[in-house]
Write a protein that binds this DNA or RNA. Sequence first.
DNA 1: TCGTCCGATTTATATGATTAAACTCTATCC
DNA 2: GGATAGAGTTTAATCATATAAATCGGACGA
Lengths: 251, 251
Amino acid sequence: MTLFAPISKTGPEGQRAVLGRNLTYGLLDSLGRAIVTGHYDGGSFPTEAQLAQQHGVSRSVTREAVKMLTAKGLLSARPRQGTVIQPAELWNLFDPDVLSWLLERKFSVDLLKHFNQLRIAIEPEAAALAARFAESGDLSAISAGLARMRAAEDGLDNPLEADIAFHIALLLAAKNPFYAQFRDVVSTALRTSIRFTNRIKGRSASVPDHAAVLDAIRARDPDAARDAMRRLIGDVLALIDEAERQNLPVE
Amino acid sequence: MTLFAPISKTGPEGQRAVLGRNLTYGLLDSLGRAIVTGHYDGGSFPTEAQLAQQHGVSRSVTREAVKMLTAKGLLSARPRQGTVIQPAELWNLFDPDVLSWLLERKFSVDLLKHFNQLRIAIEPEAAALAARFAESGDLSAISAGLARMRAAEDGLDNPLEADIAFHIALLLAAKNPFYAQFRDVVSTALRTSIRFTNRIKGRSASVPDHAAVLDAIRARDPDAARDAMRRLIGDVLALIDEAERQNLPVE
DNA sequence: TCGTCCGATTTATATGATTAAACTCTATCC
DNA sequence: GGATAGAGTTTAATCATATAAATCGGACGA
């Protein structure tokens, strides 16, 4: 059974089919993706010796990749028992790698809904905190994001990247390191959303709604900022719920 | 310079001073704690050869521990450059290990505030979701937590553990895997809070306030559930803010 | 029937050798 | 003089092999 091709090291001509910046990261990515997408769901996970052989790398590389996966909560290794996949509840979902592997699965409205259920908790509160604590640099950054969104309306910028820039700047303005950690979740959620929301309405993210958030932050009005942001994400969630009710075909 | 004692392997009588279940995990914990608590802030991080020598372990163990730390975002390793500590913004703060190392630092009201600023985003929304999606098993679990809190009032249970059980059960009732991930943050926050809040008021967590949350969830009223939970955590935050203003000596 | 010991399996650890990557410095060329 | 190509050096990356420790299952014996 040849589930995987060799990661490929330096080939005859010296080219390197990169799956990462070196063999270990290549294997990490390959295994992580395979685990999260359920390639091992039926049978059991291979032993470290089998892994090394299947991927054509040494045991050192294998062990280091496995150790990284255990650090992210995907695996657990014990002598004699072998290396086993941990139940999904133990995975570190906020790890950027795990997050990106999750998206390799078949697209699911469910995942998108969960993303946005999280966003509607985090971002309104982040806006409220930003209204209290944002410094002038933070305000400029949010404002710059908004400006890019306006430019995008005239085709002068990428609307998705502009939207992301706005939301990231806002998370940083909350001046709380935990909120800053949601950078990846939010940008991932937005990137995932785009191919979905665009199917429903032709509209991209509403500039006036975003402007309302910034205005409230500028006015140092936490409650108004929270409400404005809540409305923004509430709209997306309503869209998703509607799609779910209609059992809309997606992708 | 002997910053660290050897991790200690099997000693004379065969006992093992465990800093983890094996050498790699011992080193992981030791290095993680040292990094997060700032032991390396002045100088630069040792090379892998130096680490191995300083801790009296082999290069394999060292490399695997370092790889786990890079997986958690604390380190980055490149040839010729050596192994370097990543800026704190890149640390995976939601990783349970990182979270626990964070608490090894000198207690700071700041950290406690950040914890609860996060909780006030997550938990009210979790309560609202629970009001919509909780199944009967979830309701029993939350109810059991509340019962334990009541028992604790009569000295029949541990008030802190009862409180934690309540909040964890609620997170799980939201039926969203991302919310479930906050188990560690919330229990850590509560454990940290206790030694702080107890200094201010003699009161432990209010049973009626918690009961109000459960009642709203039972009544399938998301808005009421959100408000009730918001009030609960808002109280804690108010306490912290007050303490901060008075620059209260802590611990 | 129960416990103890033995053997097999798999990860854990150690070590030596070699390779590749990345930075520094220098000497050379224009 | 300044850019630039190349050599040299440092450090992680990789490979290979050997040995130790942990644990499971079954055999054996009281």
